Every structure is written in C-alpha cells, then in structure tokens.
Simulated assay, not measured.
Amino acid sequence: MDTPRYPGAMRTMHWLVAVLVLATWPLGMIIKFVRDDVKLDFYLLHESLGFLVLWLMLVRIGIRLTSRIPKSAATGSMALVAHTVHTGLYLMLIVMPVSGFLATNAHGFPLVWFGVVPVWSPVGKTPDIAPLLSTVHEWSAWILFSLFALHLAGVLFHHVLRRDDTLYKML
C-alpha cells in the first residue's frame, strides 16, 4: 500500500498515549469502589500514569508541530469536525492530567511519581480550590471520553463506510 503515513514518532506517541489513557481512565473510575487498604495504591498508579500522559502529550505536541503530516481525506464540514475533535483531544489530554495533579496536591497529597520521584507542586495543600480542581478533572475526563468516542466513530466511518486509507496512516 502506497499510503503516506504519519511519521513513526507520531504514530508511536499516538498509540502509547491511547494505551495509557485506556488504562488510566477506568482506573480513576473504579477508585471509589476499591477497598480502603489498597485505595492509596490505586490513586498512586492512576496519578503516576496520568502524569506520564501529560509529559508524553507535551512531547507529542512538539513532534506534531515539527512534523509533516499526510493530507487528510476529510473535506468541508467533515474536515472541520475532525479538526475540532483532534484539537479537543489534545486540549483535554493536557487539561485532565494538569487538573488531576493540581487537585491531588490541593487536597494535601503530593505526587511521588510511581512511588519514587517526588514532584514539586505549584499549589501545595489548598483546600479552598481543591473541589474546583477535582470538578475540572472529572469533567475533563468525561469530555475526553466523549471526544474519544467521536474519534473512534470517525475511524470506523473512514475505515468501514468510506473504505479510505485514513486508519492506515496511523498504523
């Protein structure tokens, strides 16, 4: 197949972030149902993976801004929808881990990344803003989930209905 593909670094970052989000998002959703004696372990894993997503997204944005990408098969309003969904995904993949990190710190739990690296917090324990940051984190998670569903619908639309090479560009 002669399909022009995204650069290897972009494809790698895309799938790495996707796998991490698909692990981190449900992990965050089940924490409230976990036994108290292991709850902090679940929080540490969720927060550490989320913080990793943040750094990978910053690298991904850098790669995206400095790489040539293949031409999109979408045109007109479909191109606008695709651009809006992608922009929203990138935005939420920054907002969600930042708000989660800040919320955790504001609640008085500094992040020790994967239990090894202490991470400095710009807010520290700040109970006045902790609920707001938690709300932003929760809402951004649901927005991300919705955008992911739209993204997946777009992939299926292109691959199954239009039978174009859009999916192959990212494989």
Score class of each variant (00 low, 15 high):
112 V>Y: 02
135 T>Q: 01
143 I>R: 06
120 W>M: 10
118 P>L: 01
120 W>D: 06
101 F>E: 01
129 I>H: 01
107 H>C: 07
107 H>K: 14
114 F>D: 01
143 I>N: 03
126 T>P: 00
97 P>C: 10
124 G>K: 14
127 P>R: 14
103 A>K: 02
101 F>K: 00
107 H>V: 12
97 P>M: 07
106 A>N: 15
98 V>R: 01
127 P>A: 13
124 G>Y: 09
108 G>T: 02
124 G>I: 07
132 L>T: 15
99 S>T: 12
120 W>T: 11
115 G>I: 14
134 S>F: 04
129 I>S: 04
125 K>E: 00
123 V>D: 02
115 G>F: 12
104 T>C: 09
103 A>E: 07
126 T>G: 00
121 S>P: 10
129 I>G: 06
142 W>N: 11
142 W>S: 01
135 T>C: 00
136 V>D: 03
109 F>T: 14
113 W>A: 11
123 V>T: 10
118 P>G: 10
109 F>H: 15
114 F>I: 03
122 P>S: 06
141 A>R: 09
136 V>A: 02
110 P>S: 13
143 I>V: 15
133 L>D: 09
105 N>S: 15
97 P>S: 08
123 V>S: 04
133 L>Q: 03
105 N>M: 05
134 S>P: 05
126 T>N: 15
113 W>L: 15
98 V>H: 04
113 W>I: 01
133 L>S: 08
127 P>M: 08
111 L>D: 14
129 I>R: 09
128 D>A: 07
140 S>Y: 08
136 V>E: 02
131 P>F: 00
102 L>R: 08
136 V>W: 05
131 P>T: 02
139 W>H: 07
101 F>R: 00
98 V>L: 13
98 V>Y: 06
111 L>G: 11
125 K>T: 04
115 G>D: 09
138 E>Q: 10
122 P>H: 06
126 T>S: 02
109 F>Q: 11
113 W>Q: 04
137 H>P: 11
136 V>G: 05
105 N>V: 05
140 S>P: 00
112 V>K: 00
